[in-house]
Amino acid sequence: MADVLEAVMREGRSRPSKIMVEANLSYDRLNRYLEVLTEKGLLENVEAEGVYKVTPDGIKFLEEFRRFEKLAKIFGLEL
């Protein structure tokens, strides 16, 4: 899910087809992640434009994720 957020964040706002390529996900899995991330308020679906953008909560989550990823990595683990 962090990969999806990162992909959207890189572009500022992004279409699902672009996110799918950037995050290297199947269509079904991407849809599931987009649904979860939108429900949690980390992504916002701008329906009029057909794009997703990262919310302030999403940015905060991503920052925390990157920090804790370092903790996992020194133990040789992947989040």
Partner: peptide
């Protein structure tokens, strides 16, 4: 840390 980002790996650690 696991509570904040919902990581199963950090929970197990």
């Amino acid at each position: 840390a696991s509570r904040r980002i919902g990581s199963k790996t950090l929970t197990q650690l």
